[in-house]
Simulated scan of single mutants.
Amino acid sequence: MGSCIMLILCVFILEGVFGDPAEVKSVKEGDCVTLNTDVTKQQHDDMMRWYFNDRLIALINGHPNTSCLYDGEDGRFRDRLKVDYETGYLTIMNITTEHTGRYEADIIRSGSSGKRQSLNRTGKCNRTKIINKSSNRGEIIKSIRLTVSGSCLSPAVVAGIVVGVLLWAAVVVVVVGVMIRRRRRFSDDMKKIKQVLEKMSEDETPNGRSLMI
């Protein structure tokens, strides 16, 4: 937990020292996070693009058929991205610590000269393609530095905890089993003693009792 707090504090310190204008957000692992642009598209043909650490993860042309959502490096965004094709808002579902980083959105207006020609609006979407930020940049409309805090436990520690819990459960099961068997055995012994006493009582006669007196 301490390492997660230190990571968040370091992000805030760096923001103050270097004067980074990016908005700072901190979320928890497993959350569903929506990144907004605070900008309204003026035309349906306006293009918005979202970058993660200077690599394209979403190209929004106003319609799913002409847009593309990319899996990102190592497929970390596969089946996790969702966009609003009117506003350009980007939603990351079931976010993990791998999604910590800088997100940046730019826009290219439909009336921008010399830029629309170089953008392929009809090409097939290749989700696995890695596209770095190029010089063909639009107007930067949003920068967000996102920090995702997890459990702060390494996979080895988590595995150790799981093994420990399983071992403890196994010990409890064995102890409970032994107690149940002992209880059953004690109950059987008590029944035998009761049967012997009853038999002795039945065998005892009145004459026998008088002679003993």
Score class of each variant (00 low, 15 high):
residue 194 K to N: 10
residue 47 M to D: 09
residue 112 S to V: 12
residue 205 T to I: 06
residue 102 R to I: 10
residue 200 M to G: 11
residue 152 C to N: 09
residue 188 D to H: 14
residue 207 N to M: 10
residue 164 G to N: 01
residue 82 K to S: 05
residue 103 Y to C: 06
residue 74 D to R: 11
residue 81 L to C: 04
residue 88 G to R: 08
residue 164 G to I: 03
residue 206 P to C: 10
residue 181 R to K: 11
residue 51 Y to I: 01
residue 147 T to N: 02
residue 42 Q to N: 13
residue 93 M to Q: 00
residue 96 T to E: 06
residue 190 M to C: 10
residue 43 Q to L: 00
residue 111 G to H: 13
residue 135 S to H: 02
residue 53 N to V: 02
residue 52 F to P: 03
residue 117 Q to T: 13
residue 27 V to W: 00
residue 131 I to C: 04
residue 15 E to M: 10
residue 69 L to T: 04
residue 208 G to F: 15
residue 136 N to C: 08
residue 193 I to M: 11
residue 207 N to S: 10
residue 37 T to L: 11
residue 191 K to L: 09
residue 117 Q to I: 14
residue 3 S to D: 15
residue 205 T to C: 04
residue 116 R to H: 04
residue 84 D to F: 00
residue 118 S to P: 05
residue 49 R to A: 05
residue 128 T to A: 06
residue 172 V to K: 08
residue 117 Q to R: 13
residue 206 P to V: 11
residue 130 I to V: 09
residue 101 G to M: 06
residue 97 T to Q: 07
residue 29 E to A: 11
residue 82 K to R: 07
residue 25 K to G: 04
residue 3 S to I: 14
residue 175 V to M: 01
residue 189 D to M: 14
residue 127 R to I: 08
residue 136 N to I: 08
residue 187 S to C: 01
residue 16 G to Y: 14
residue 137 R to N: 06
residue 151 S to R: 01
residue 167 L to W: 10
residue 155 P to T: 00
residue 197 L to E: 15
residue 81 L to F: 07
residue 20 D to V: 07
residue 169 A to L: 13
